[in-house]
């Protein structure tokens, strides 16, 4: 896996908001076929990182490469390989699910002859076929979240960025969405953020723990377990973030 070139590589990302450093010298790599968990307490810089990786926010310094294409220099070419689900799913409530996915597919430059097939496949993978003709505004939160994921994968991108994909869902929906993410992680590179540690442990191959804009841990989840030396993951997380705060 590691021999392959990374689908996404970020180097030395920094971002300042007024006087406050929101992100400081962050390095990040994502390989095909792995799920990278972005962890950290609220305000650690997870969403900022994701907004920078997807071209929604410009970093003050550093660079992002998606499939070897520089996001800053060739944004259109780099974004071809990208699917993004922000914290609040970007849905047009007045469109039907299938209509919205057709729009998302065209927007992501799926060739016109392949749009129908791409939408059908995304509907199937996200288990949305039954509600394809319903208006997005009338769907439950769980289904809306799935439509959000469907728009991120409809063009089968190499890199999928999911910002808290299970937030606000009920346990049954969480289980279904996790199964979907696990399936996506087999064929794509996935970065997901969460502040729920068991979720990261169940899904992610690697974790990056952020605290106050800096990476305080980066490596396989198993390594985090070892570092904990018998403590629970929560204790370990608290320990790491305290260390980060002290440094």
């Amino acid at each position: 896996m590691v021999e392959m070139p990374p689908s996404l590589r970020a180097r030395n990302l920094s971002r300042r908001h007024g006087q406050r450093m929101v992100l400081e010298a962050l390095d990040l790599e994502l390989y095909p076929g792995e799920i990278l968990g972005l962890l950290g307490p609220n305000g650690a810089g997870k969403s900022t990182t994701m907004r920078i990786l997807t071209g929604n926010l410009a970093p003050d310094s550093g660079k992002v490469e998606i499939c070897g294409v520089d996001l800053c220099e060739e944004p259109v070419a780099a974004k071809m390989h990208l699917g993004y689900l922000p914290e609040i799913p970007p849905l047009y409530r007045e469109l039907a699910v299938s209509e919205f996915l057709h729009f998302a597919a065209r927007l992501h430059r799926v060739p016109e002859s392949g749009v129908g097939a791409a939408v059908t496949e995304a509907l199937r993978r996200c288990d949305l076929t039954k509600v394809a003709q319903r208006l997005i505004g009338n769907l439950s939160k769980g289904y809306q979240q799935r439509v959000g994921i469907a728009q991120a994968i409809v063009h089968s991108p190499a890199v999928i960025v999911l910002d808290e994909p299970t937030a606000g869902l009920d346990p049954l929906q969480i289980r279904e969405i996790r199964a979907l993410i696990a399936e996506l992680g087999r064929s794509h590179g996935v970065i997901m953020s969460t502040h729920f540690l068991p979720e990261a442990e169940a899904l992610c191959n690697r974790a990056l723990i952020l605290h106050q804009g800096r990476a305080v841990f980066s490596g396989p989840i198993a390594g985090l377990r070892q570092q904990c030396a018998g403590d629970s993951l929560e204790d370990c997380f608290v320990h790491l973030t305290r260390l980060g705060a002290a440094a």
Partner: peptide, 14 residues
């Protein structure tokens, strides 16, 4: 207001 702009901004569209 509806937070839908990221869809356009992260798509390969200038």
């Amino acid at each position: 207001r509806n937070h839908t702009l990221p869809l356009l901004l992260s798509a390969p569209v200038s």
